[in-house]
Design a protein around this nucleic acid. Structure first.
Lengths: 233, 233
DNA sequence: GGGCGAATATTTATCAGACCACTTGGCGCT
DNA sequence: AGCGCCAAGTGGTCTGATAAATATTCGCCC
């Protein structure tokens, strides 16, 4: 039959697949600029509207980046770019899935913290301490949350697996944490959180991966258990 | 009028955020049908083209589903819907990130297998065995891969964490596995793979979580190590 | 009266063309 | 040579129309 344009799915869907294929096969290098929307539409034999929808789809996936007036570029395809949508999942999840996400986070966070205990550099450790102190020096929940996020982010990056760090970033995204925290911290968990953070820091300083893993697992596990209780109650 | 959204970012970007907010705040329930494209465009004061791009964006994220001739619906917001894009990440990753993804998979897969050892039902265990036997009964790589995927998927689902299963599904997506497998299996790893699968199955039957965790970690770790060696060589 | 099929209405999918907003690079002026 | 302005190029948005798939309604036949 017709091997150039088989009739499957929607026109836009095909365009998305073709663009993905171009990048997947290496015909488009990271950072490279694509032809214009108009040219691409002509090449694939579709209208500019449909082409734009396909481009928009790949843009939200973090594969492409459109710069107004300049052109369309392939991103560096780094973990952070591609896993941005992960945060959306966290934001839209409720109830049971929230617990499941926390369970995933517990598994990854404990592993990342264990790896960090073995690999963290002096500079990174200093950063961790900076956020730890800043977190303990204020009572503003907004600021505490901010440093808490940075505390864990620094550790995740020190683990040396950017992909894992990017996933954890999504699982700790601002609105996600804020939603869970609102209730959790109301029950006076500040002090316990401080102790848990201190224990994690201790394990990092001692370069003890197993202690770090246990401390991180317990830290996330606390929130997880609270969340689980909220659902039952 | 509407003084809440004066001038930030692109029109389409704003529409995406507004739609996300509607769903996030629960103003749109899962499965519910949205107003028509035209109505939505009018409500938000934008053109239908822009509205369509916003809808397309949320469609690829797995949040919305458009049915030709019928309308636009909110998905059930299940893990599988939302984490579909995870497979795209795996497909577009190369080199170092491929190893990082395998590391993530090793961590999650071993945890899921350990959980499954404790929770798997008789029916599910029978399914696992079915795929294990089918995998050993053929020499067709395509069929082996297919049953291998089903083997691990069944175990992940038995772990009882749908979110984790969905992520693992993405990390094991067909093209991802196929790419890695092509080289790996050429080195005659079939026999070793069989032994590893058998060990995992054994641990499940014995309901021994720690043995299951170790077996799964070793299984993925084998591929991971091979991949790492490929990069250096 | 009830079931069933065709006509009709609704809605998404796609296309075409125009104009606006922003970026970039070159051209001319100082 | 340096600076500033302008024009071409490009993504962003809008309008309106047509096709295709689905949902609804109505009329016909039994």
């Amino acid at each position: 039959m017709d091997q150039t344009a088989p009739q499957k799915g929607t026109v836009t869907g095909r365009a998305i697949e073709q663009l993905k294929a171009m990048i997947g096969e290496g015909r488009l290098e990271p950072g490279e600029r694509l032809p214009t929307e108009r040219d691409l539409a002509t090449q694939l034999g579709i209208s500019r509207s449909s082409m734009r929808e396909a481009i928009r789809a790949l843009t939200v996936m973090g594969v492409l980046e459109a710069r107004h007036g300049s052109g369309i570029y392939v991103t560096q395809l780094e973990a952070g770019d591609l896993l941005e949508t992960f945060g959306v999942v966290a934001d839209l999840s409720r109830g049971r899935r929230l617990v499941e996400l926390l369970e995933v986070r517990r598994v990854l966070e404990s592993t990342a913290t264990a790896l960090a205990a073995a690999r963290i550099s002096a500079d990174q450790l200093a950063d961790v301490e900076k956020h730890l102190e800043a977190m303990n020096a204020t009572e503003d929940p907004e600021e505490i949350l901010s440093h808490d996020l940075a505390f864990h982010r620094t550790i995740a990056l020190a683990a040396g697996n950017d992909t894992m760090a990017a996933i954890l970033e999504g699982l700790s995204s601002r609105t996600f944490r804020a939603r869970v925290w609102r209730g959790y911290q109301e029950e006076g968990a500040f002090e316990r959180t401080r102790r848990e953070h201190a224990r994690i820091h201790c394990a990092l300083v001692a370069r003890d991966p197993e202690a770090a893993r246990a401390a991180a697992a317990a830290h996330v596990g606390e929130v997880e258990e609270w969340m689980r209780a909220q659902l039952d109650g």
